[in-house]
Design a protein around this nucleic acid. Structure first.
Lengths: 228, 228
DNA sequence: CACTCTGAAATTTGATCATATTCTTGGGTG
DNA sequence: CACCCAAGAATATGATCAAATTTCAGAGTG
């Protein structure tokens, strides 16, 4: 309590409520652009293009691109250019393997730790997700599906597993968007209800199985789309 | 063939054969410092300290630190400082879970793809590894063990699995070094021989099992060291 | 005469550095 | 003990240099 004096003084004298560094905000904006935005697989990403689009300096953009490249969301295009990666069928198989290994574990741990309020929040996200499917609102579907899964990661209390799972999402996010853009939100079944029921009663094994089915179901959609 | 005239002229006039960017070399040096060098868990990493140690500019160092932070090799220490993470027992349990899920798969794929020459190279690394153990040469052991595993990753032809496995190594590398620095190279059994025999005959399942045992054995060492 | 292919200038983009600004921290003072 | 101030460290900007792609003109060919 007492150590916040300095902050308060600064905020009083300068009224700056923005302690978040520029490279962090640029990173989030660029990440969301990759996950939900207009950056499609194969599309080149230039520093100057991003500085213009996000109205940011060169350095923060460079650092955000480095970070996303390290996470697999972008890839080096041979000679110092970067672009959004295009997944091969083999890549999708790898992603399926890792996701079905990791996400059930995250769901299991989340089921053991979630209280009623946590589950209510998940149900709220899921109901809005269903609404987006009914409305055919692809962008809302993509974001809410992402938020549903990452909310479970948050509950699992497993920072390393969470970091890996979020990294995977950055890899298949653009392709998932392409799939939904092509097929719409129809034929997008999920196992969210089963997972939520299991989590409400703390049934970790069933939650894990539901998550596994959900992951495989969703990734199969991506694989089919890429295969032809 | 003909379009390389411009390159040739440039190389003639300036004779610069260094196409590797500075941030890339700094990244590798800093990564090796984390994996094999003097950067221990909990140790703070400052930009200016690295620029002085590696005789590099500020910008390349910044980018290397960003990249390593994204990979989990470094972590933000609250207010814009970074340090080498200190693993908790829970962290180690997560690492064990992911490694035992992923590395057997990499070994299995490597066993299916490796030819005689590939296996010879692995045997060469492993024999030098044994030599380092006999000699009690901890730095050589650490580097050769790393090279043994990453050489298998290379053979697996699975870029995403490989990226994740290498990222995990960056997380437990410093702690592994602490363990070996405390216990020496005695009592460091591994399953490398079993894995190599299986790979020579293309027995993917046995290679996977050997790798799984090897990973669990090594990580248990780390867990015990941290727990007590 | 149209077409293509070559080769080099021009533009675009990335990499690096020097510098200014802002923030954190540790020590000194009322 | 609280407050303030100075030193040090990180962030961010803009300029400068290097590299690569693109464009375009002209010669050679069918």
């Amino acid at each position: 309590m007492t150590k916040s004096k300095a902050e308060q003084k600064h905020q009083d004298s300068k009224s700056e409520p923005a302690p978040t560094p520029a490279h962090e905000t640029v990173y989030r904006q660029l990440r969301d652009l990759i996950l939900f935005g207009e950056l499609a697989p194969g599309q080149p990403v230039t520093i100057q293009g991003i500085t213009a689009k996000l109205d940011a300096g060169v350095t923060p953009v460079r650092e955000a691109i480095r970070r996303l490249t390290a996470e697999g969301a972008l890839e080096f295009q041979g000679n110092r250019r970067v672009c959004v990666p295009q997944l091969s069928v083999e890549n999708v198989n790898e992603l399926i393997f890792v996701r079905q290994a990791i996400e059930p574990q995250l769901a299991s741990r989340a089921a053991e730790r979630a209280n009623e309020q946590d589950v209510s929040r998940l149900i709220d996200i899921d109901s809005r997700l269903d609404q987006a499917i009914v409305n055919g609102d692809v962008p809302a579907y993509l974001e809410l599906n992402y938020r549903f899964h990452t909310a479970i990661y948050d509950l699992a209390d497993a920072p390393i597993l969470q970091a890996i799972a979020r990294g995977l999402w950055l890899r298949f996010g653009p392709s998932l968007r392409v799939v939904c853009g092509r097929l719409g939100t129809q034929n997008l079944p999920d196992q969210h209800k089963e997972a939520l029921n299991a989590m409400r009663v703390g049934d970790a094994a069933t939650a894990a199985k539901a998550m596994r089915d959900d992951v495989i179901q969703g990734m199969e959609q991506v694989r089919r789309s890429i295969a032809g």
